[in-house]
Amino acid sequence: MTVLVVTNDFPPRQGGIENFVRSLCDELPEVVVYTSREPRDAAYDATLPFPVVRDRTSMLLPTARITKRAVQLLQEHGADRVLFGAAAPLGLMGPALRRAGARRIVGLTHGHETWWAGVPGTRQALRKIAEAADTLTTVSSWCEDQIRPALSPAAAQRVRRLTPGVNTRRFAPNCGGEQVRKGLGLEGVPVVACVSRLIRRKGQDTLIKAWPLVQESVPDAKLLLVGGGPDRQYLEELAVRTGVSQDVVFTGPVPWAEIPPYVDAAEVFAVPCRTRRFGLEPEALGIATLEASAAGKPVVVGDSGGAPDTVRHGETGYLVDPYNPVAVGVRIADLLSNPQHCKELGAAGRQWVTEEWSWTRSGAVLRELLDV
């Protein structure tokens, strides 16, 4: 029962979707991955316990050539199950793979399929993708609400929730934060961390704008921005204009394997994510928030798309208006001023993630959907 995984979202490219797809591969008995070319991919692929076939292009699209290659791999490896790492647009290859012998086809949806569901043309394409698959999965209740109406009644009934899991052994309290603090010169000061790509949707600019208000209550508080991205220069300049450049620490890109200690280095984890581009660019879920909860950190999360699924408001952290730096600043300042409340929220978050967001549960759902 070999599964052919067809995806553009695969390491060494960094990101939540890439880690999601990679981790799901570990939950399947036999896997072959067909994916796009990435810098330094050969060295990464050599570490994996399953074969990875890289296309010559940097992005797989459902063209005739790539569809033919996917069919060849299905047959060469004796695969009879297919998992599309992103249903749109790769799921358009579904009918050809079905004719070639695929018995079960599952398409993962993330954030971008939500706008496919709402735009004429792509809406019809998404409907075709769902008809060709046995199941489309969604990562959050919000994504499901957006996608279901675009599908036929029969396909809508086959939609299932498949969320990422969290490795609670890697993301755990005291998993190396003190070493990170020492290395960054943050010993003995309150730290708020945001671990994410530096892009507008994640709301790092809101945190910087909120920081003067935070420092009115907690003067020595530092903001730790972990990750790289196209907004680095904009955020650095914003910190200068806001007068907090000495209190904002940029780490640059950090390999995913080294992320847990950076989360552990903080008292509070904050990502005031927001929906952009007239609703076409939402936050589908936000696995980093759940990882922070697993590390025992209270979380402050923007109310965007499926992000509310990652926090129990008032129990593991708080939802905030991502367009309101004052509200964000007040919430963060209140948490930093109440260490005991932070500990209580963090402990509740770790218990919740341990019980309900495990890879064991996610893997069981996927194996059921693929019938393996």
Rank of each mutant, 00 (worst) to 15 (best):
A292N: 11
V31A: 11
Y44R: 01
A96V: 00
A86I: 06
Y262R: 07
L345Y: 09
N19L: 08
P12W: 09
R277V: 08
F10V: 03
Y323T: 15
L97S: 10
L48T: 07
F84N: 03
G363P: 08
I66A: 07
F20K: 00
L235M: 09
T47V: 06
T289L: 12
L151D: 09
T114Q: 08
T57Q: 06
V328M: 01
V226K: 02
T168H: 08
T2M: 13
G78Y: 10
R312W: 08
E18D: 11
P49A: 01
C194H: 01
E38V: 07
F250I: 11
E30H: 15
N338E: 14
K343T: 03
E356K: 13
N324Q: 09
R197D: 04
V189K: 11
L224F: 05
E30R: 13
F250S: 14
L108I: 10
H112T: 12
A193E: 02
L366W: 02
L285E: 00
C175W: 03
G101E: 05
G111L: 01
M59V: 11
C273Y: 05
T7R: 07
P282F: 10
L186I: 08
V330M: 04
V189Q: 14
V166D: 00
C342F: 13
F269R: 04
T206A: 08
T109I: 07
G107L: 07
F278Y: 03
S58A: 04
M93H: 09
D231W: 13
I208Y: 00
V271L: 14
P62Y: 02
V244R: 08
C25S: 10
L92K: 10
A43N: 07
G185H: 09
Y323E: 11
E356H: 15
N338L: 05
V5H: 05
P51T: 00
A347W: 02
V254M: 06
A46F: 02
S304M: 12
V299I: 04
T289S: 15
E113L: 10
Q340N: 13
K68C: 06
P49Y: 02
G78T: 13
I147K: 04
H110Y: 14
A265P: 08
G185N: 13
P12Y: 01
E144I: 05
P253V: 07
H110T: 04
Q14C: 00
D231I: 04
F20W: 05
E76R: 14
S362F: 01
R103M: 01
W359F: 09
I208R: 05
A292C: 08
A294E: 06
R65H: 12
D145W: 02
S293W: 00
P325I: 10
D45A: 15
P49K: 04
L336E: 01
R181H: 14
A79G: 04
G279A: 04
R277Q: 12
D334S: 11
L366P: 03
P219T: 03
L74N: 10
Q75R: 15
A221S: 14
V226L: 12
V365K: 05
Q72C: 01
G296P: 12
R127V: 00
E27K: 14
E315G: 01
Y234G: 02
V214T: 07
V189C: 11
V189Y: 15
L151C: 03
E187R: 12
L235I: 03
A102D: 11
R158W: 12
K222S: 06
N174W: 05
G107F: 04
R367L: 12
V244K: 03
K343D: 15
R361S: 15
R350I: 00
L184S: 10
C175M: 07
F10T: 13
R40H: 11
A257D: 09
V353Q: 05
